[in-house]
């Protein structure tokens, strides 16, 4: 089986600070990491490789430094990494990104399964996975929490939706996006790291892909960002202490009063 895992480099957000003067995000010193939700996609692919045999290729679109996430993917056990990189790809929205990635994946040829993360934690759109499927006219199953291999050409998957878990029979080739429940990601190993250092990362760009230039980057993106603001969270609330029995009773009394006043109980 030939599995492709599209992954993304995102800013590590747990330490993001806002500049109180300008209201903008302080980007300096913010580390780039592999999108945490992509780790589950990588793990799902690597588990299939362990159990059924597969070649797993991680693909990322970004500047040359994004190669770091491919190194990590290979350190975890992926066979290969492909960097989709070109100045012309810069500023792409999800539509243009999924176009470029789908063309890159087509160029790799012979894909049985594409496994993507649920979404990226920076843009938070969950649109690139389905977009790639649409460009490639592949069947799409999102929010997958479990994969069973029925045959070489068919998977039985479980899909986490509002009503519970749907069970679907999915013919290959197909694209799935996975949720965290699918598996717990493995850590990169030293052996993998050494392999990554020896692996030549293939770069795909406008030079070796046949691309519709009007579909690329900022210019090719149907959506345009017209304004960026910093939301002000203003919620100063009541604070009560409840450190001993008496104050617990009082605090809960006041909470109940508050909830009744706001008509939620």
């Amino acid at each position: 089986m030939n599995i492709i895992v599209p992954i993304k480099q995102v800013p590590e957000t747990s330490n993001v600070k806002m500049d109180p003067e300008t209201g903008t995000m302080v980007r300096s010193g913010v580390e780039s990491v592999v999108n945490p939700l992509d780790l589950y996609a990588l793990e799902a692919a690597l588990s299939l490789k362990d159990s059924h045999g597969a070649t797993v290729t991680a693909v990322t679109m970004g500047p040359p430094k994004a190669r770091k996430v491919l190194d990590m993917a290979i350190s975890m056990g992926c066979d290969d990494g492909v960097l989709v990189s070109d100045r012309k790809f810069g500023g792409a929205d999800t539509w243009a990104t999924s176009y470029t990635l789908s063309e890159a994946i087509k160029a790799l040829g012979n894909v049985d399964l594409i496994i993507a993360g649920e979404r990226a934690t920076d843009g938070d759109t969950a649109q690139v996975g389905p977009g790639i499927a649409a460009w490639m006219i592949l069947p799409l199953a999102t929010y997958i929490s479990d994969i069973e291999v029925e045959s070489e050409k068919c998977l039985i998957v479980e899909r986490l939706v509002e009503e519970g878990y749907e069970r679907l029979r999915l013919p290959l080739p197909a694209l799935i996006t996975v949720v965290k429940e699918i598996a717990s990601p493995r850590l990169p190993t030293l052996r993998g790291k050494k392999k990554a250092m020896q692996t030549e990362i293939r770069t795909l760009s406008t030079e070796n892909l046949t691309l519709e230039s009007t579909n690329l980057g900022l210019k090719g993106s149907p959506t345009k960002v017209v304004k960026i603001e910093t939301p002000k969270v203003t919620r100063g609330g009541t604070v009560v202490e409840a450190m001993d029995d008496a104050s617990v009773t009082e605090a809960v009394d006041r909470l109940m009063d508050f909830l009744r006043q706001r008509e939620v109980v």
Binding site: T238, A242, A251, L255
Partner: peptide, 9 residues
């Protein structure tokens, strides 16, 4: 950011 915060166990 809470509207009502209880500092307690």
């Amino acid at each position: 950011i809470a509207d009502f915060a209880i500092v307690g166990d």
